[in-house]
Write a protein that binds this DNA or RNA. Structure first.
Lengths: 145, 145
DNA sequence: CTCCGGTATGTTATAATATTTCATCGGGTG
DNA sequence: CACCCGATGAAATATTATAACATACCGGAG
């Protein structure tokens, strides 16, 4: 486990403790897998990664992912049916994700929406914002090819 | 069939003809179902609606939906695994959708992105923008309850 | 006309994603 | 201890989507 992952896990533990949330072993393990992956991970890939430990079943993974996303420790990427660790440990609410279709890199931005956005009187609870394309490295690689 | 749906279908036919696309019977029928629904429709609900006509199979529906979304006549709502007719017949590219979680109403906005958005050098191919909440009618209904 | 290539559709099967349901465990609290 | 509650285990199943291959139809080339 890289030092970076360790630090992120420690930070997650602290965040959960202060919020009264239980970062149990399964949840912690799933978060670790997300942190270690360079690209978004599918639920069944997580499941496969957990198998060696003990015979995990789908609900185990989905529950852990549900917890992590609620806790703001991970994001679900809707258009990919995949998940990624959140890099802004303290970031509340919804992020905008920039997903490289070449290398899988996910960059995260938090932006507050201008209030005049959207139809009159529409009250937004939750937003999904995902941009697909090429990250800067892959865009230049492609251009030179 | 309401007059509004008829008009939309006619417009779709014209749009396809000018682009050299074939709005075949299945595709047209699926578009009609989308237009007639007040809320987003799931693929398997479309499938069920098509059954009476002839024994349609999943690929039939998914192909039609694929065509319609490519042609800009429908949108896939990623976080719901559902589909809705596009109300901007001529609108190209990606829309921002405002989806009422109470009544299912989908409003559509097209917005051009400021170029400074996103990480440096990231090249966006496609964006998914979905806002979930309450439409103006449902928001006031809820407030009074 | 006939053949051919391409697009669209039909058909069967199966893959991939996700949830329901009920049982069990373990830790805190009265 | 007895109880409750949140978390996990386990089995089954529901939902969403695609693969793979066969067939049909239509246009143009020969």
């Amino acid at each position: 486990m890289t030092e970076e992952v360790t630090r992120a896990l420690t930070a997650a533990e602290r965040a959960c403790r202060t919020k009264g949330l239980a970062l149990t072993p399964v949840r912690r393990r799933v978060l670790q897998l997300l942190l270690e992956s360079p690209a978004p991970v599918k639920a069944y890939d997580l499941l496969a990664s957990l198998k060696p430990d003990g015979g995990a079943q789908p609900p185990t993974v989905y529950r852990a992912l549900d917890f992590l996303t609620r806790a703001g420790l991970a994001h679900r990427i809707e258009a990919l049916n995949a998940y990624t660790a959140c890099v802004h440990v303290g970031g509340r609410g919804s992020a905008e994700l920039y997903i490289c279709e070449a290398c899988g890199l996910v960059e995260e931005r938090h932006r507050h929406r201008a209030p005049e956005d959207g139809p009159d009187g529409f009250h937004i609870n939750r937003s999904v914002v995902e941009h697909y394309g090429r990250c800067s490295a892959c865009a230049t690689a492609q251009a030179s090819a």
